[in-house]
Each structure stands twice: as structure tokens, then as C-alpha cells.
Design a protein around this nucleic acid. Structure first.
Length: 574
DNA sequence: GCCGTTTTCGGCCCGACTGTTTTCAGTCG
């Protein structure tokens, strides 16, 4: 079983944690953390034997020493340096550092002076009031640790974007309603549109003397005020979401927005560029010596270092700064580029609304077309369509299109199950009557990488397979992606004229950004589709567009930005 | 430990907040 990038990254994070507790050079610790982040963000598996680039030291933040360690991990699955360290320091100390308020120094003190080696030990020590005896700790610190420890269990670490939006919307309305508040913007990973967000960073500008922090603390949903200052406060909401609010001066708004949008890795790289030009970039502005030369808006910040504006979705330090420098940033797709939806269900299978309602809702959105893709017969739990029922639906759609009189075109389609042997679960004859066919894996997720990949390649061999839906099968926070050689799938898709889906369901977002980027490199175009199970679900489209943007995709790389005639042309595989 | 048309050595982002302190260490982002 080849080791995943995520696991390699975790080994380096644990090494960094234990080294930090051990008192190693902070720069050495940072080097391991940086390498860990780089590895976690790679789209290509380091352990893949067919990987072309074998020289790991060419990865950013990876030098000779870490490259060697990666090679050892890929070969043996082990990191000897970490194991040596774990002989002296309990491995669980690394986990303890995850608890907010506990850093390397405190964890070390707890371990050395109290023999606290695990979270369970920590809980006992807090209960027996042993923690407050330690130098540098007090009763307040002990109590805080106890409270956070109690909440630690069972609480989801990250929140999906849709749920985050549900938390953000009323909070923004509340903040904007405060008299004197001028601007309110959510920065952080929320603005970068990551599929999940850990906490919310909100920037506010306001007239002098506006009691922003008091009012923020008094928000109805606040469960705990973690900290409160004049320019920055942190609260925990009842939903479990942590929110940081920062009051920033208007003149520094762009600099602060940039700083707090991140990613941290992007910011550090940009600061480096600034330092070389004799500039200091921080959340208050861009400074030459002590003179502020920019900072009112983000354009100025980039302009000060000679770069064009970089969209938040690209700010992950994955080549966007280099691309900006060479003036080859992609012109990212926008929601308005989308001209139709190619994956939607009706009451005929497991959707909630009728064919007519779905068509009406799509027309309301200004779409030119909507593909109705109810499930096929294998998916009995979703009352999948057999040949006969599909034939009836084809006729129903023909009649509906006549009534719609060109307002919108409903495409005759289906979401086919890819069976275990790679065959599709309806006969070719009825499939030939459709405008397009979306193909999905809905069961047997646990096949080996080789068999799962072959299963999908086999499905794509059928010229009726147009779009491979939710290619990784992941459900965020619920189910991991199945093991699949995505690069081989993309290669095959490119050869056969198949497309891959960017499923816009907030639970799926599949392809993810890394997958989109791989598709782009493989010159495989994608369809951004909502997989709507109700008329209101059609609104999920923007979540898919977000991920496509994070994956550097342009409108011309997405097939449902095409007009109807162009699209139908593209879908012809023979 | 990484990195380099200012460097192969000497830098590495830095300010806010808390709690425990009598002037600052630890943590966070």
C-alpha cells in the first residue's frame, strides 16, 4: 500500500512539533512545517512509482536533507528521526499542541514537571489542580485549558463552506447594522473559498469611536469571548465556529485584507519579494523605510512589488506568484460564464421536484440548457430508471421542450452507474436516444487502486460515456476519496474525448482544486454541475465555480460555458 | 533546514492579546 502525501505530511508535522518541544532551532522547525504544507498540497502522489520527477529537493521548501527523508518514508513508510525523538518524548505531545493555548513551551513544562504525556493525563492534572502550580501557569490558565479540553471531544474541526455561509450571513448583517460601521469583509480561507473553513476572519472599518468590539462580543450567537482588545477580538459561537474580528483603519484596509486573506504561505512569499525590493509588507500597509507607500486596497499591495492583482482563490503559494511575475495568470472562470447545468435529478428518481419545476428554475437562472440526469436502474434506493421508464422520460422531455418554446432546452440525459466490471447499467440502444450520459461510481468504493482505475477506464471505453461524475467519490468530512489513479483517468479521458465533472454539491466539491489543476494540465475539459436534487439546489453552481477557480480553470476549459450548439458538438464522441 | 542577479553564510514576518508577570514570555495567526 503506497503511502499518501497526507501521511508523509503528518510525519513531518509531528517531527516539527516534537522538535519544537525539544527546543530545536525555530527555523529548523519551520522548515519541516513548510515542507509538510508543500507535500499536503501536492496534486501528485510522491509515492507514485511512475512519478516523473524523482528529485524531491525540487519541491519548494524541500532541500537535500528533507528530500532524503521523503525518500526514506516512500521506501519504508517510516521516519527514523521521528522515531528516535519519540523514544525521548511521548508521541502524544504533538497532539496536545493542537489544543488552543498550548504551545511547545507549556507542553514541555507539563511533560517534564507534571508527567503529563497525553490528553487524558492533562485532563486529570487539570481536575486535580496540579497545572496551576507550574511556573508561568495560573488558575485562569488551568481553567481555560480544562474548558477547551472538555470541548475538544467530538467537535468537528472544520466547517463546510455552505454551513460557514449560513453562519456568516446573519453575522455580517448584524455587524453592518452597527451605527458607524463602514465596511465588513470576511477574509481567510473563507474568502479563498476552501471547501472547509477552520475559523472566520472578519475585517471591519468604522468611524472613530464606534463600539465595534463591545457589540461584537454582545452578538446573540456568542458562546465565549476568548479575547477582546481594541483592534482585535476572538469569540466562539454557539455553532462551535471561532470568529476573529479585526478593526482596521481605512488607509490600511487593502493591506489588512491581503494579510488576513492569506494563505500564510502566499503572504510569506510575497513579503520575501517585498524585502528584496526594500519594502516591508504587513497588515498596516507597504512601507519603504517608515513611509507608507501603499495599502488602501489590494491592487496597490501587489502593484508595490510589481505584480498584477492575484485572485484570492489562487493565493496558496502554488506557483501563482511566479505566474504573476511572468504575466501568465489564468483569467479565471466566473459564475456569469455558466450557461447551463449538466447534472440534475427529478422526482422520477431521488429528486424532490418535477421535470417542469426543474426546467422552470433553470430558465429563471438564465440558463440556455439543463440536462436531466436521473439515476439508472441499479440504484434501486433512488428508484433508478430502467429502460422503459427512461423511454417514458425521453418522451416527456420532448413534450416539455415543445411547450417551453425555446425559453430553455431540456437535455435528455441519465446518470449511469458504473458497475464493478466497468460496464454501464442500461443497454446501448436506449442510451443512444439521449443527448448526454453522466457516469458515476456509487458502490464498491473499496476496490484496489488498480481495479478501481481499470473499472473507470473501462467505462470510458464506451463511447456513450460523456462525463465522469464526482470522480473521487469523496464526501467531505464523511467519506474519503476512493483509491484511484487520477492521472491515468485523465490521460484516458483526453484520448477518448470524455469530460470530468466538478460536482458543486457542498458536500462533494469533486473534482477538488488539485484535481482541476491536473485536468487543466492534461488538457481535459470539465463540466461544473450541481447534481441538484431540488430546484433550489441549482444555486450550488457557485460552489463548483469556486473550486474550478481554485484549480486555475478558465471559462474555455469548462464545457457548460458553451452555447447549446457548441456543447452538443463537444458531446459527440464518435 | 532552506535559500541565494545583493549571499554558499547568515539571514529567516512580526504585531496583538493574555496571563502572570512587576517588564515580559508564550501563543496565535
Amino acid at each position: 500500500m503506497p503511502i499518501h502525501n497526507r501521511e508523509i505530511a503528518d510525519l513531518f508535522t509531528r517531527l516539527a512539533d516534537l522538535l519544537e518541544i525539544d527546543g530545536a532551532s525555530p527555523y529548523r522547525v519551520r522548515a519541516y512545517r513548510q515542507a509538510s504544507e508543500t507535500i499536503a498540497g501536492l496534486s501528485e502522489a510522491l509515492s507514485d512509482p511512475s512519478r516523473e520527477e524523482k528529485d524531491y529537493s525540487r519541491l519548494p521548501g524541500v532541500g537535500e536533507s528533507i528530500a532524503e527523508k521523503i525518500a526514506t518514508i516512500v521506501d519504508t513508510g517510516r521516519l527514523p528521526q521521528l522515531e528516535e525523538l519519540e523514544e525521548r518524548l511521548p508521541a502524544d505531545l504533538s497532539e496536545m499542541m493542537q489544543l488552543s493555548g498550548l504551545g511547545p513551551k507549556r507542553v514541555k513544562a507539563l511533560h517534564q514537571d507534571l508527567g503529563v504525556d497525553t490528553l487524558a493525563d492533562l485532563k486529570r492534572a487539570v481536575e486535580r489542580h496540579r497545572v496551576r502550580e507550574l511556573a508561568g501557569f495560573g488558575a485562569k490558565t488551568e481553567q481555560t485549558i480544562g474548558e477547551r479540553l472538555a470541548r475538544w471531544e467530538g467537535e468537528e474541526k472544520r466547517t463546510r463552506l455552505l454551513e460557514a455561509e449560513d453562519i456568516v450571513a446573519p453575522l455580517l448583517r448584524y455587524l453592518e447594522s452597527i451605527d458607524g460601521v463602514k465596511r465588513v469583509t470576511v477574509a481567510g480561507s473563507y474568502r479563498r473559498r476552501k471547501p472547509t473553513v477552520g475559523d472566520l476572519d472578519i475585517l471591519v472599518t468604522a468611524r472613530k469611536g464606534t463600539p465595534v468590539m463591545e457589540r461584537f462580543s454582545a452578538y446573540d450567537e456568542v458562546r465565549e469571548v476568548v479575547s477582546r482588545g481594541d483592534t482585535r477580538s476572538t469569540v466562539m459561537l454557539r455553532s462551535g465556529m471561532q470568529v476573529d474580528l479585526r478593526l482596521v483603519p481605512q488607509v490600511a484596509y487593502g493591506a489588512a485584507l491581503h494579510y488576513f486573506t492569506g494563505s500564510r504561505s502566499h503572504n510569506i512569499a510575497l513579503r520575501r519579494i517585498g524585502v528584496k525590493k526594500g519594502l516591508k509588507i504587513n497588515e498596516y500597509g507597504v512601507f519603504r523605510d517608515d513611509e507608507r507607500i501603499a495599502g488602501g486596497n489590494e491592487d496597490e499591495v501587489y502593484d508595490s512589488v510589481g505584480l498584477p492583482y492575484i485572485e484570492p482563490e489562487l493565493r496558496e503559494n502554488r506557483g501563482e506568484l511566479e505566474a504573476a511575475k511572468e504575466d501568465r495568470l489564468p483569467r479565471l472562470i466566473e459564475p456569469g460564464d455558466i450557461r447551463g447545468d449538466l447534472h440534475a435529478h427529478t422526482r422520477a428518481s431521488d429528486g424532490r421536484d418535477s421535470l417542469e419545476d426543474m426546467a422552470e428554475a433553470a430558465a429563471q437562472r438564465g440558463y440556455e440548457y439543463l440536462a436531466i440526469t436521473d439515476h439508472s436502474r441499479r440504484l434501486t434506493v433512488a428508484s433508478g430508471l430502467d429502460e422503459k421508464r427512461l423511454a417514458q422520460q425521453i418522451e416527456a422531455i420532448d413534450r416539455l421542450n415543445e411547450r417551453l418554446d425555446g425559453r430553455i432546452r431540456v437535455l435528455k440525459a441519465i446518470e449511469l452507474d458504473i458497475l464493478e466490471d466497468g460496464s454501464l447499467d442500461l443497454p446501448d440502444a436506449v442510451l443512444d436516444r439521449l443527448d448526454l450520459r453522466v457516469c458515476s461510481v456509487h458502490y464498491k468504493f473499496d476496490l484496489s487502486r488498480k481495479r478501481q482505475t481499470e473499472r473507470i477506464l473501462r467505462a470510458m471505453d464506451n463511447p456513450r460515456c460523456n462525463i465522469l461524475a464526482h470522480p473521487s467519490g469523496r464526501l467531505i468530512g464523511e467519506r474519503d476519496a476512493y483509491d484511484l489513479d487520477l492521472e491515468r483517468v485523465l490521460e484516458a479521458a483526453a484520448e477518448r474525448g470524455c469530460f470530468l465533472e466538478v460536482n458543486a454539491q457542498p458536500k462533494r466539491l469533486d473534482l477538488d482544486a488539485a484535481g482541476c489543476r491536473l485536468a487543466k494540465e492534461a488538457r481535459v475539459r470539465v463540466a461544473i454541475s450541481t447534481d441538484a436534487h431540488s430546484a433550489s439546489n441549482l444555486a450550488y453552481m457557485r460552489f463548483g465555480v469556486d473550486q474550478a477557480r481554485r484549480g486555475w480553470l478558465q471559462a474555455d476549459e469548462v464545457i457548460n460555458t458553451r452555447g447549446l450548439d457548441d456543447l452538443l458538438q463537444l458531446l459527440r464522441r464518435d
